[in-house]
Design a protein around this nucleic acid. Structure first.
Lengths: 207, 207
DNA sequence: AAATAAAGTTAACGATGTTAATTAAAATAT
DNA sequence: ATATTTTAATTAACATCGTTAACTTTATTT
């Protein structure tokens, strides 16, 4: 059955060519700059061919971000080895902010847009996914911090803690990707903001 | 000269009708749902008439948000009366989050999109503008907190403090307007997240 | 009443995502 | 080997969008 295998291989090949062409446009100029016709031009296929490999533009770019988000998921995996929960929180924040700043358009799609049909994406939301993995890691870390009695005694809800922590770090990235640079603010560096935020949060949450 | 006055009045009238029609579409369904043709339909004018009153769609909706953002600017004005800087920070955060949750599409445009031609909008960025006013208020508040020696002695940069604070609060809203509700997270209420965040930040920043 | 200025409309352009109908290519069956 | 069927890809077209240019109507001024 080498014949169906080859076809599968060819199919995957074209699919990857589409993804690569889309990535080049997307990473630099964002969602709107990726048009079906420009992708098609880049790979010398007709625009409609893309629909044989992806349901629509949204599915294509979501897949792109899911794949490229693996680097974030990996970084999260690595940092899971850090024994000290509080140190791990620091590392998570840093990883997260770095990813957002270095992959602005990926970040925008992953964390700054509403998924229109949530139910459709639920199946892919298992392990290996940067969104779910990141939250899981954060949750575990806070649970351990609670278990090790590092936090103030009234702080017992790991979900609440994780979501507050996430919101703060997300805010740093989100601001960096939108209003950062607007001339009516004397901006400090995102690194400085991150550092102050983490210091403050950890100080505010520990005994 | 009652004639030019009346014309001015009529002109303003139509302008407002455009804004009202646009607001109805925008507030409920967001930027993309506002099309020139739908606005035109709603007010019984041709689509191109709108261009006699606004440079383009972006200018129209930005003006809309500037106007409606006045409620936020006013709320900020009121809270400026609060004497205690730390209490004022609490109030600012609450006002900010409330506005974002109650006017999601306005918030999206004001704080979650990049202004394409920054320079063009600089003139309107004076007083009465929710963005600049809010930041100014935040900055003043931190400066007072520093002056009153309420903060840790090494915290002397009001800009840095304001930006970190803003980022955290913005993150709460931003998450609420995008991934909040995604079923792979056991969400806590935005009020709870806000409260924990403010408590933690204030505890982390004060002596 | 004629000339001028202003306001508004119609028609059209160039994009975009996407679907339906059609053709080309490849694999399978006779 | 040839005919048939399945698969892959393309062409043509649609609906919608923001926007511009040319034209028409209405109001004001001379």
């Amino acid at each position: 059955m080498g014949i169906t295998e080859r076809r599968e291989r060819e199919r995957l090949n074209i699919r990857n060519k589409i993804l690569d062409a889309a990535r080049e446009l997307f990473a630099v100029d964002g969602y709107d700059a990726v048009t079906m016709r420009r992708i098609a031009d880049a790979i010398d296929y007709s625009p409609t061919t893309i629909y044989l490999y992806f349901k629509d533009k949204d599915a294509l770019i979501r897949e792109l971000c899911r794949i490229d988000g693996a680097s974030l998921a990996e970084a999260f995996q690595k940092v899971a080895a850090e024994a000290n929960p509080l140190q791990r929180l620091r590392a998570i924040a840093k990883i997260y902010v770095d990813f957002g700043i270095q992959h602005p358009n990926h970040y925008r799609l992953l964390f700054m847009t509403t998924r229109l049909n949530e139910a459709e994406y639920l199946p892919e939301m298992g392990h290996g996914n940067p969104e779910t993995d990141g939250y899981e890691l954060l949750l575990n870390t806070f649970n351990q911090a609670i278990a090790q009695q590092l936090l103030l005694p009234h702080l017992v809800d790991a979900h609440l803690l994780a979501q507050a922590f996430w919101a703060s770090v997300h805010g740093i990235v989100a601001i960096h990707l939108t209003i950062y640079g607007d001339p009516w603010v004397e901006w400090r560096s995102s690194e400085a903001i991150t550092e102050l935020t983490i210091d403050t949060l950890l100080r505010g949450v520990t005994r």
